[in-house]
């Protein structure tokens, strides 16, 4: 068995606005199905309830993110993804659903900056409204990062975790690193 590595070997870049860092490998499982039926299986697999629209629920190293009206993204330690898929398949047997381990199909970045630094980095690349009154901790936003799709969420400290397809990891990292350079515009009030 070959060693699993991240797309960019933990690349890191920083600017006055924020630090961009490739996150270590993380287990990710996509679950699609009828939300009215999958709640019990999600609780069994990762110990979390069902998120509301656009919400992400986090508990230590596990999380459940709302991706669309019939799709969830479950996050767990890298080595646990296979076991989570097995648990979901057992719990949902007979139902119409899809559970796939997508850990190796994704790249994951951490964007941390003081004040609203991470917000500004993303606002330079995404058409999303990132003002604190619209986007805040606990919410997942799927949008466009320049030319590629991406999803991100913010934790209570204001740092952002962003995921995109692994095949565009270098492109996404270079975008973020470039956006983190240069001084703050100060458009967003410090959150």
């Amino acid at each position: 068995m070959s060693d699993a590595v991240t797309a960019l070997g933990g690349a890191r870049a920083g600017g006055p606005l924020a630090t961009v860092e490739e996150a270590p490998l993380r287990g990710m499982v996509t679950l699609r199905g009828d939300f009215a039926r999958v709640g019990g299986a999600v609780r069994e697999a990762v110990g979390l309830g069902m998120p509301k629209t656009r919400q992400i629920l986090t508990m230590r190293d596990r999380a459940v993110a709302w991706m669309s009206p019939d799709e969830l993204l479950l996050l767990m330690p890298y080595g646990k993804a296979g076991a989570v898929v097995t648990l979901l398949e057992g719990a949902l047997e007979g139902a119409h659903f899809l559970a796939v381990d997508v850990s190796d199909a994704r790249a994951c970045f951490r964007i941390s900056g003081s004040g609203s630094g991470a917000r500004e980095v993303l606002a330079r690349l995404c058409p999303a409204d990132l003002s604190p009154s619209v986007f805040g901790p606990g919410e997942v936003r799927r949008t466009r990062l320049a030319q590629v799709p991406a999803a991100f969420w913010m934790d209570d400290s204001g740092d952002v975790t962003l995921i995109c397809f692994r095949s565009v990891a270098r492109y996404a990292f270079d975008l973020l690193a470039n956006a983190a350079e240069g001084d703050a515009v100060g458009f967003f009030p410090a959150s």
């Binding site: 629209t53 656009r54 669309s68 009206p69 058409p127 999303a128 409204d129 936003r141 799927r142």
Partner: peptide, 12 residues
């Protein structure tokens, strides 16, 4: 109408 986001045209 599904996720309630005000989407810019370029996201669609």
């Amino acid at each position: 109408p599904y996720c309630g986001i005000q989407c810019d045209e370029t996201e669609l």
